[in-house]
Design a protein around this nucleic acid. Structure first.
Length: 402
RNA sequence: GUAGGUGUAGCUCAGUUGGUUAGAGCGCUAGGUUGUGGUUCUAGAGGCCGUGGGUUCAAUCCCCAUCACUUACCCCA
């Protein structure tokens, strides 16, 4: 027997139903916000992720599915969606065309890690990206969209917010942070590495000892330039105005290098240890960094496996027809009728004749609303009965397809 | 990479202090006298008790190894 690879799962059964339900409704909501569908390749040049996600990130450092293809290209399976969307934005020359572009996407992402609850090697995200809008109202808007999505699916969660500053305030802050870190002894090994590669990530180290040592560290949020500070205030006031509850997490820096200014995460207490169910933020330098004309960007991604268990599905209503044959002579007619009705209805059937009782049981299993059974009597009378399985009413119809 | 937990029917799990024929619920199939369902009743099918080795007269059970799954750490969605 061949099993799926570790950390990879089939989309079937209950998960499949929920997945479709989730994607359809997220897409609907995103369209209402003016976003249009984009799909980018799963394979991209390794350089794309190295440059966008960042070499200091764990994702690039140790989690990518990376290989050399037959054309000797160094390629990776995408570990997240933003890099590809930005690349596509530049490829299409939308950066030069100017204006605003809003995209939503969904699909498989790949990270080579140890699987656990809500974390797979092939997992699925639904995400959106806005290009060309510097206004922080857009940040607020996509957070409102996320909130709307979670509300729609009945998912309880909390929003955590931070601002990472911009090219004006971040560099000086970073210098100050490094100076502070230099005065500290006893940081964990990882943090010592981070100090050199991406010092702000020291802030969200989970090591308790590091946390203590960092109690007096300078915080990003307290060292923002006036613009960033104003934007952050405006973001908060919009969220307040529309009743979005949030908390400020000064240590929220996120693991991807491309974020600046707004950074946020939605977390849930109901999904095991990995409590981030969605994350996002602003990445105003990324388009330029990947070779495009300078364009602001902001977006989010939802981890579908993280929230799938929290989705409450509406109850299935009975729908469509079940048509069965009670004698072999009737089979041909049943098939004809099935094909005809399938032009505009959900129709279930079976290819063998059996008792009316067995057919009715099968129709319940199929959750059909209407039931038709054809046997010798129907063949003789050229009529059949349609039974409404909810109301138990029966009505006689003449058929003309013999 | 590290640590714990679990591998018995399609699914969820009992069980055997080592002994001949392996258990339940759910699901599946078929029936409950004339062609009417969901909840019911009866019957049936379905197991190399994860794999390899060891101890033993005898292993699904004890020991070792291995693989898989799972949870957690790290990190992320």
């Amino acid at each position: 027997m061949i099993n799926p690879l570790r950390g990879m799962k089939d989309t079937v059964g209950e998960f499949s139903k929920k997945y479709i339900f989730f994607i359809e409704n997220c897409s609907r909501i995103a369209k209402n916000y003016g976003f249009s569908f984009i799909e980018t390749p799963i394979l991209e040049e390794t350089a794309l992720f190295k440059r966008s996600v960042g070499e200091s990130s764990d994702i690039v450092g140790k989690e990518m599915y990376r290989f050399i293809d037959k054309g000797k290209n160094d390629v990776c399976m995408r570990p997240e969606g933003t890099a590809g969307a930005v690349r596509a934005f530049i490829t299409q020359k939308y950066d030069r065309a100017g204006g605003v572009k809003r995209f939503f996407y969904h699909g498989s992402m790949f990270r080579y890690e140890r699987p656990q609850k809500g974390r797979l090697r092939q997992f699925h995200q639904f995400g959106v990206e806005t290009f060309g809008v510097e206004d922080v109202k857009e940040d607020a808007m996509i957070i409102l969209m996320l909130k709307e999505i979670f509300d729609f699916f009945g998912i309880a969660c909390k929003l955590q917010l931070n601002s990472l500053g911009c090219v004006t305030c971040m560099p000086t802050y970073k210098d100050n942070l490094i100076k502070f870190l230099d005065t500290i002894e006893g940081l964990c090994e990882d943090c010592i590495k981070r100090k050199a590669t991406n010092p702000i990530r020291v802030l969200d180290c989970k090591n308790k000892n590091c946390n203590k040592l960092l109690e007096n560290a300078p915080m990003l949020l307290e060292n923002l330039c006036p613009t960033c500070k104003d934007d952050f205030s405006e973001l908060k006031s919009i969220l307040d105005e529309f009743g979005v509850v949030y908390s400020i997490d000064k240590k929220l820096v996120r693991g991807l290098d491309y974020y600046n200014k707004t950074a946020f995460e939605f977390i849930s207490d109901n999904i095991g240890a990995k409590n981030a169910i969605a994350g996002g933020g602003r990445y105003d330098k990324l388009v330029e960094f990947l070779g495009g004309r300078s364009t602001a960007g902001v977006g989010f991604a939802i981890g579908i496996e993280r929230i799938i268990d929290l989705i409450v599905m509406p109850k299935n209503k009975k729908n469509g027809y079940y048509i069965g044959a009670m004698s072999d002579n009737a089979l041909k007619l049943v098939i004809k009728l099935v094909i005809k009705l399938r032009k505009s209805n959900v129709v279930h059937t079976q290819y063998i004749s059996k008792s009316i009782k067995a057919h009715m049981k099968a129709s319940d299993k199929a959750e059909a609303k209407y039931f038709i059974c054809i046997g010798e009597n129907e063949l003789k009378s050229k009529t059949y009965v349609i039974k409404n399985l909810d109301t138990k009413e029966e009505s006689v119809e003449h058929y003309h397809i013999l």
